[in-house]
């Protein structure tokens, strides 16, 4: 653990992520203003002492919205990373180890990968409605094949190893072999991949919001705030600037962290990702 933290990228990435995540986690404490409360007469006011980041087109407090929006964005990033890793790990391990299902599963994964992820996500949000759940599902689905391919690749290499073959000969059950011998070997790669998926999920959420196919605009998220700020960005650049800056910083932090983890945990991954 100490060794990991010694890597300057990991340390820098962690610092950025923590600085960005803490206000989001404690949003209600950091900002006492209701992020959805409207004051129609106070619309489009530049940053001031009472509104640090100014007000938006509805007279809502941009600072409060950015802080609360961070919660949504982080939630999306974490959930997408967790779900796609878990599902991808199960499918990938099964596919790499059990010949029968491999062909079918990999054709479906090929199919999913061939559909442009953003278009797929837009279509899925139009099916499921603009809810947090459907956005998470829409972003997760195209990420799964990436995890499946990685895990399957590792499994394919490891199952040829002598100790695995020994376990098979000794009559250990397939599930036990997967659990005890194979999955532990995928952890390092998966942690790194998870960080990349999380970062790209935060970006995709913002892109979907930007294209008007994101989370219900009633819930503040960085994507929603940026989308609403589009029309007015020449007269009120602050509405666009603050959430964009936060978005760039957190994604940057997670990416730097991911690069650092990759270099310390498994340098060979550099070419695979």
């Amino acid at each position: 653990m100490k060794k990991i933290l010694d890597n300057p990228s990991v340390a820098l990435g962690l610092v950025i992520v923590v600085i960005m995540a803490v206000p989001a986690l404690f949003a209600p404490l950091v900002s006492s203003i209701d992020p959805t409360a409207m004051a129609p007469m106070e619309r489009i006011k530049p940053p001031s002492a009472s509104h640090w980041f100014g007000t938006d087109l509805f007279g809502r407090d941009v600072y409060s919205r950015v802080v609360h929006g961070g919660r949504t964005s982080l939630l999306v990033g974490l959930t997408v990373a967790a779900i796609s890793i878990v599902i991808g790990m199960v499918i990938g391990a099964a596919s790499g180890y059990i010949r029968v299902i491999d062909a079918v599963v990999m054709r479906i994964m090929d199919g999913l990968m061939a559909i442009p992820s953003l278009l797929l996500a837009i279509a899925m949000v139009s099916v499921g409605g603009a809810s947090l759940t459907s956005v998470v599902v829409a972003i997760t689905l195209p990420e799964i094949p990436r995890v499946v391919r990685l895990v399957r690749g590792i499994v394919l290499t490891i199952r040829e190893e002598a100790y695995v073959e020994a376990a098979v000969t000794a009559g250990t059950s397939t599930v036990a072999i997967l659990w005890r011998h194979i999955l532990p070997n995928t952890i390092a790669a998966l942690i790194v991949l998870a960080s990349y998926i999380g970062a790209s999920a935060v970006l995709t959420e913002a892109s979907l919001g930007f294209l008007g196919a994101g989370i219900s605009p009633e819930i503040p998220s960085w994507g929603n705030i940026i989308a609403e700020a589009r029309v007015s960005f020449q007269i009120a650049p602050w509405i666009l600037f603050f959430p964009s800056a936060c978005l760039v910083l957190i994604v940057l932090g997670v990416n730097v962290l991911g690069d650092g983890l990759r270099d310390t945990l498994d340098p060979r991954l550099a070419k695979k990702m």
Partner: peptide, 14 residues
């Protein structure tokens, strides 16, 4: 390279 990866394309566009 990290920066280029982290800036959303639409923010860059604007």
């Amino acid at each position: 390279s990290v920066l280029g990866f982290s800036v959303p394309t639409f923010v860059l566009g604007y």
